[in-house]
């Protein structure tokens, strides 16, 4: 096949529409063709958007099965490509520390949010799992939204929080980690700041130190998200100074 003919295969390659042998031949061509490589990259990103458009809520037992399999699976070392491979740690280390922090918080949130509650009966457990997966799907959509923003900060009094917001989806999530229990059965309450007004946006489940909370209402028109400690049941306006203020 001529080079020109090969070049027109970028689309078929990006969509996985070549046979194994053709794909291998085209991959060899990519090694020598910088413009094809760039085009394939963009078209593969485009194909991933086609995938995002058909996302589903996975059944809860898929998570269980996948997580249970991990200890048995030996992880591959990084590819040996001489000098071109830089350890990822270094690549990411300085670049976006707040994202690493966010990822860390998400990890904690997920671990906290989906830990198996052994004492619940099976039925309740199933309902919980379904809700957890729906919540996970919402957080997933948020995290992969093209316009998602991440803001992380430490809370006065301990713990930290990350606000993930997408104006396009009209959704905001608060991922929290290591929140200390509050005295007098007070609760952590989330607020949107809109034109200097604090609008209630949800309560962190009592007794939970790490997790994810989808805020009530979207980020549009909000200039920030605040966290305060409030009496049991929450308040309609803040009764204490903010423990944290984050951008959206």
């Amino acid at each position: 096949m001529s080079t020109v003919e090969l070049h027109t295969l970028t689309g078929a390659y990006a969509l996985g529409a070549l046979t194994g042998r053709e794909a291998a031949a085209f991959a060899r061509h990519l090694d020598r063709c910088a413009s094809c490589t760039q085009e394939v990259r963009e078209l593969q990103e485009t194909a991933a958007r086609l995938a995002l458009a058909v996302a589903e809520v996975p059944p809860a037992d898929l998570r269980t099965r996948v997580m249970a399999a991990l200890p048995e699976v030996r992880q591959l070392p990084p590819a040996e490509q001489g000098t071109t491979v830089v350890p990822m740690r270094r690549r990411f280390g300085h670049r976006l520390p707040y994202l690493a922090a966010a990822a860390c918080l998400v990890a904690a949130a997920v671990a906290g949010g989906y830990a198996v509650q052994a004492r619940h009966d099976a039925h309740e457990q199933r309902d919980r799992n379904v809700r957890a997966e729906q919540q996970a799907a919402a957080v997933s959509a948020l995290m992969t939204a093209p316009d998602a923003t991440f803001h992380t900060t430490a809370l006065k009094g301990g713990g930290s929080g990350t606000v993930v917001a997408s104006k396009r989806l009209g959704r905001t999530a608060f991922l929290y980690h290591g929140l200390p229990a509050l005295s007098g059965q007070r609760v952590y309450e989330l607020w949107y700041s809109r034109n200097g007004q604090m609008v209630p946006a949800g309560l962190v489940e009592t007794g939970r130190s790490s997790g994810t909370l989808l805020l009530t209402g979207g980020p549009r028109g909000a200039d920030g998200v605040g966290v305060t400690a409030e009496p049991p049941g929450g308040s309609s306006r803040p009764t204490s100074p903010p423990l944290a203020l984050l951008g959206v």
């Binding site: 995938a51 995002l52 058909v54 996302a55 589903e56 809520v57 996975p58 898929l62 998570r63 996948v66 997580m67 990822a103 998400v106 990890a107 949130a109 997920v110 671990a111 989906y114 996970a136 799907a137 957080v139 997933s140 995290m143 992969t144």
Partner: peptide, 10 residues
């Protein structure tokens, strides 16, 4: 597990 949450549905 976080990554799972973000991508499993897709």
């Amino acid at each position: 597990e976080s990554l799972y949450t973000a991508v499993a549905g897709t």
